[in-house]
Amino acid sequence: MGASISGEALQAIAAFIPIFEAPDFQFAHNDSPLRQTGEKAFEMVGYHYDPQVYEFWEAAEQSGWLQPSNWMAWSETDEALALEDRPGAVEQASPEQLSRLLTKFSRAERFGDGAWLALWESGLLMRILRRAKDLEGEHQ
């Protein structure tokens, strides 16, 4: 897929755990990407994510987590499906597998609002961050 994930890259995203776990943190500030503009008219406005969410994705990109890949094809593989759905899979994932997951959701958000919110609401994002924290500890 690309270069391996460094200890610094692991730390860069694991640093968001306390931010995202804060009692007053709200990942998205609206529950629909639509705004009603008339009795039967709607406008697509997208989700309004907390600024920390954008900072997270910027940190992920800057630290090398988001790699060019055929993420759509990978999304259909047994590996991808297991990482998303099988209990305990993310907790055993390699940094490269975490990178593939983050890349998938980063790119998917560009094609349709709500991919980041789905990642958050499923609990998968926090499991990825906790796994990055565990892996960071192994790098020290």
Rank of each mutant, 00 (worst) to 15 (best):
E43C: 13
M72Q: 14
E21C: 11
E138L: 14
L129K: 08
S106Q: 11
D78R: 04
P87Q: 00
A115D: 02
L83P: 05
F25H: 10
F111S: 15
A60N: 05
F111Q: 13
F27M: 09
D78L: 08
D24V: 12
N70I: 10
R131I: 08
D31R: 15
Q67K: 06
G112V: 08
I17D: 09
L34Y: 15
F25D: 09
A28L: 04
R107D: 13
E121P: 03
Y49R: 06
L101N: 09
S69F: 09
S4P: 13
D134V: 09
W57Y: 07
Q26D: 13
D85M: 11
Q52C: 04
R35K: 15
A59S: 03
L81Q: 07
E138H: 10
E55Q: 13
D78C: 00
E55F: 07
N30H: 09
S94T: 15
P18R: 08
R127H: 12
G88F: 04
L101P: 00
Y54G: 01
A60F: 00
N70Y: 01
S63T: 06
S32I: 10
A118Q: 08
W74Q: 06
A12W: 06
I128W: 02
A28T: 00
H29L: 15
A28Q: 11
T103S: 12
Q67S: 07
N30R: 15
S69R: 05
F20H: 05
E43S: 15
F56T: 01
L10R: 02
W120H: 14
R131A: 10
H48T: 14
F56N: 01
P95V: 04
E138W: 01
E109M: 08
I5K: 01
D113P: 13
D50R: 01
L83S: 09
Q11E: 15
Y47K: 05
R131S: 09
L102R: 04
S94R: 04
D113H: 15
L135E: 04
